[in-house]
Design a protein around this nucleic acid. Structure first.
Length: 584
DNA sequence: CACCCCTCAA
């Protein structure tokens, strides 16, 4: 603001000087015979541009000097000439003099008032704007609003203000997390082009992005080429790569890579807790329990400080192998060592307990976590509600749904669907429909799963017509039937022996571009059996085994049952042998 | 700003 005023004042003065010179120029000829030579030689020596750089006092002194000399000469010279000329030029000079003097004074005052302090504030303004802008970009990136973040970035670039490296990394991270790898790559190219040059975190973010896309090839490629850009991979890079390899089940490759990079000391070197945790996690998930226990021992014996994630990985690992009591032991260990279990610890335990059918214990843990000040999240509720529904306690599951609503948490569609499905399975169609109403009242849109749950329960209740109209309704509401929908309807038609309907649905599956799965074919096979077309069923079973499908025991079982009923014991036995052969 | 843990339905 201040500098704008100064600039305005300066240009004002320049204008006055300019017009002064023009005026002077025009009257110069008329008064030249009096003092032109003297004036010109003195006054015009002050360069216009110079006034901006020379001390203003010097200009002023110089100007005043000129004025003095001018007026002295003017007075001296004006006497012999005709008075008009003298008076006229005197008046002009007086006016110009006043204007210039005022302006110069004003300029001087302003210059003085604008100390370095004020100029500093001006810089501060820039700083504040810059900080504000990059803070907004970062926040937008974290919220996933990358379009807006990028346009703000672009606005800064247009103003020749380059956001710092961290802000760039935030943007790249945002693009990677949302799967926009091409945008992330483009931004890295931008950084190489105009700066700031990418750092290790930039490349790590991009590598992580490739891993999220399951593109390990590219991740490894960047990993091996990033050194060419002058930035070597660090421990974080290794952890990202090792994690990706573990996820793919390539534990051996991960270990080889580490040995290659970190030397032969690995894995005896447990200095990096995170790397060891990743490897332990990978071993548990790949079913190599002995290896997992080796890593676990290694970490414990390493005497290094542990973290909550390490305990959670151990707890999860033991839950995974069904050893919940050891998992509990590690929870106790956490408490002993001063760590408090977090939402991950509790959810892991609850998930394992629900899977085991120990729902009462799961509900107990739910109470414990609430008392410990860890609020259950959607995952907690999802697992408990699903566990209760699966084990037939829909009523208790519904209580948890209400606990969520009481906590002002709007359940995800999944949770509503699980409850609807639960009521449908136990034949309570009314309640299933009322939950669907409630779901709509909370603004949660029904999806394909919702409709499939409803269709399933209608079919279970024998209302096939209702099931078909639900299929029509879902299309109207913007959801699309999937293979499960078709399999449900196909199964119903098969059981009813409705040949026309079976053909129609099968046709719709194929025309819709869906690939019939093993359940579709099993339903068809069941239809052939019910209708007594055992040869067709045999043919279908043969065909199934040539297709790239995971054929389970169900189609064999259906056909064997049919042969049993027909007292075709030879054929039953033949089929049984085929099945054994298939399984081996 | 970048690395490890919980879910993802019939």
């Amino acid at each position: 603001m201040q500098s704008v005023l100064i600039a305005a004042e300066e240009s004002h003065i320049l204008r006055i000087l300019n017009s002064s010179f023009q005026t002077l120029d025009s009257i110069k000829d008329r008064i030249s015979h009096i003092f032109a030579n003297f004036f010109c030689s003195k006054y015009f020596s002050i360069d216009l541009i110079d006034t901006r750089y020379r001390g203003i006092d010097e200009v002023k002194t110089s100007y005043n000097q000129n004025q003095c000399e001018l007026s002295e000469n003017g007075r001296r010279q004006s006497e012999p000439s005709d008075g008009d000329e003298g008076q006229c030029s005197g008046a002009v000079f007086n006016v110009l003099d006043t204007m210039l003097k005022d302006s110069l004074d004003r300029l001087k005052t302003m210059r003085q008032s604008i100390s370095w302090d004020a100029i500093g504030r001006e810089c501060c303004d820039f700083e504040v704007n810059y900080k504000r802008d990059i803070t907004i970009i970062r926040a937008l990136c974290l919220e996933g609003k990358l379009g807006v973040a990028l346009s703000l970035w672009y606005m800064m670039i247009q103003k020749s203000v380059i956001p710092d490296i961290i802000t760039h990394n935030y943007l790249i991270n945002g693009f990677c997390k949302t799967g926009n790898l091409d945008k992330a790559e483009w931004l890295v190219k931008e950084m190489l082009f105009r700066g700031p040059p990418p750092n290790c975190a930039t490349y790590n973010t991009l590598i992580k992005g490739y891993c999220l896309q399951k593109d390990i090839e590219r991740a490894l490629n960047l990993f091996s080429t990033m050194a060419n850009s002058g930035i070597g991979p660090n421990r974080v890079t290794c952890n990202i790569i090792v994690h990706a390899l573990c996820k793919k089940g390539l534990l051996e490759d991960a270990r080889k890579l580490l040995t290659e990079i970190l030397g032969d000391t690995y894995p005896k070197d447990t200095s990096n807790l995170i790397t060891s945790t990743i490897l332990m996690d990978g071993s548990f998930k790949n079913g190599d329990i002995n290896l997992a226990l080796t890593y676990l021992d290694g970490i414990f014996c390493g005497g290094i400080p542990l973290d909550t994630v390490f305990y959670n990985v151990a707890i999860h690992g033991f839950c995974l192998i069904g050893d919940i009591s050891t998992a509990y032991k590690y929870v106790c260990e956490m408490f002993k060592r001063g760590f408090l279990p977090d939402i991950f610890s509790y959810n892991t335990l609850i998930g394992a307990l629900c899977k085991e059918g120990r729902t009462t214990e799961a509900c107990y843990i739910y109470n414990v976590m609430s008392r410990m000040g860890v609020s259950p999240d959607q995952i907690t509720y999802k697992m408990i509600i699903q566990g209760l529904c699966f084990h037939g306690d829909v009523i208790k599951a519904n209580l948890f749904l209400h606990a969520m609503l009481d906590d002002s948490v709007v359940p995800q569609p999944l949770i509503w669907n699980v409850i609807i499905d639960g009521y449908g399975r136990c034949g309570n169609m009314q309640k299933a429909l009322s939950i669907r109403e409630q779901m709509a009242a909370f603004g949660v849109m029904p999806n394909t799963f919702t409709y499939n749950a409803l269709i399933h329960s209608q079919i279970k209740s024998g209302n096939v017509v209702e099931a078909h109209s639900l299929k029509k309704e879902m299309v109207l509401n913007g959801s699309f039937p999937d293979l499960v929908t078709y399999n449900l309807l196909l199964g119903a038609s098969c059981n009813l022996g409705n040949f026309h309907s079976v053909l129609q649905i099968y046709d719709e599956i194929v025309r819709g571009g869906y690939y019939p799965d093993i359940i579709t074919y099993t339903e068809l096979l069941k239809y052939y059996c019910i209708q007594g077309y055992t040869e067709k069923a045999e043919d279908l079973l043969e065909k199934l085994q040539t297709l790239n499908l995971q054929v389970d025991h169900v189609p064999f079982l259906i056909l064997m049952k049919k042969y049993c009923k027909m007292r075709e014991l030879d054929k039953t036995f033949e089929l049984y042998q085929k099945w054994l052969l298939r399984m081996s």
